[in-house]
């Protein structure tokens, strides 16, 4: 166990952690604004990344425009889902489990659609900062990973500021905590919910676009990201985007440290066991508020 190896594990852990955090934040945002657990958050990542790939390679847009296009795609799909399905179900007072099933069904549909329309190939995107790497003590981290970490932290802080400082953010929180009360103060509850899904879609797509240069995107990526993102979000208390970031980082670091500290064969066993233990010891989540049912 050399210092170099530990440092490499830390690099990988933090990078993966921010990836999980990005997915988790989107999940958190959607739950915060609508109390829906979005089992297709990972698919937003795939939508964003695939759209960017297509815009870049098939229609020849410049990279920045393609990224914007991908992000917009995520936002639009989010809006569509809210308007077409969630709104209708909310009017019928559907249960939380029904919403979960909705998003599971959508996730299956989207993953199968990517396979059917785009194929089984994996795709990459050009990394920010090129193929360059930073080497410290023989441990390697790509420039793009550093960008990813920076953007991830920035997004977390921006999201927190959004919810606590802007009118829309505060309105979204109010609408989800008490719809009737919010309506009496003139907040358009339905529109706030749409914005929530737009935000979730945007975050998911952005996460996917940022992650693709490192790990590539294919039709199977969605489910894996969703599971890790869910873990990150719940660890963080489910309604706190900063919590999702901390949850994601915790998960990423526990995974890498388990690999070098114990063995790569038992990485999942260790990581998920630690997850369970953290949840039992901290029943409100790592940064969650007191008393709320599951966040």
């Amino acid at each position: 166990m050399t210092l170099s190896l530990v440092l490499q594990a830390l690099f990988a852990g933090v990078t993966n952690g921010i990836v999980y955090a990005l997915v988790g934040m989107g999940l958190s945002a959607i739950f915060k604004g609508s109390r829906v657990i979005n089992a297709m958050q990972g698919e937003f990542a795939v939508i964003g990344a695939m759209t960017t790939v297509l815009l870049l390679t098939k229609t020849g847009w410049p990279y920045a425009a393609a990224i914007a296009g991908g992000a917009v795609a995520g936002a639009l799909v989010g809006a569509f889902i809210e308007v077409a399905f969630v709104r209708y179900m909310a009017k019928k007072n559907a249960s939380e489990d029904s919403f979960l099933l909705l998003t599971i069904g959508l996730a299956l549909t989207l993953s199968a659609s990517v396979l059917f329309f785009i194929g089984r190939d994996g795709h990459l995107l050009p990394p920010l900062g090129g193929e360059g790497v930073l080497i410290i003590l023989d441990a390697v981290i790509q420039f793009h990973a550093l960008w990813l970490i920076a953007i991830g932290i920035g997004a977390t802080l921006a999201l927190r500021a959004f919810y606590h400082r802007t009118t829309i953010g505060l309105s979204m929180m109010a609408a989800s905590i008490d719809a009737d009360g919010a309506a009496t103060t003139g907040i358009n509850v339905a529109r706030m919910r749409t914005f929530t899904f737009v935000l979730g879609g945007l975050l998911g797509a952005l996460g996917g676009i940022l992650v693709t240069p490192l790990i590539g995107v294919d039709y199977q990526l969605g489910l894996n990201l969703t599971l890790k993102g869910f873990a990150a979000a719940v660890l963080g208390g489910l309604t706190n985007p900063l919590g999702a970031a901390v949850g994601g980082l915790t998960l990423g670091l526990v995974e890498s440290l388990a690999i070098i500290g114990i063995s790569s064969s038992y990485k999942d066993v260790v990581a998920f066991s630690v997850l369970i233990i953290i949840m039992i010891l901290m029943p409100q989540g790592i940064l969650g508020r007191a008393g709320r049912r599951g966040g």
């Binding site: 949840m279 989540g285 599951g294």
Partner: peptide
Amino acid sequence: LTGYFLAL
């Protein structure tokens, strides 16, 4: 645990 913590 309760709610989504339990699910996780």
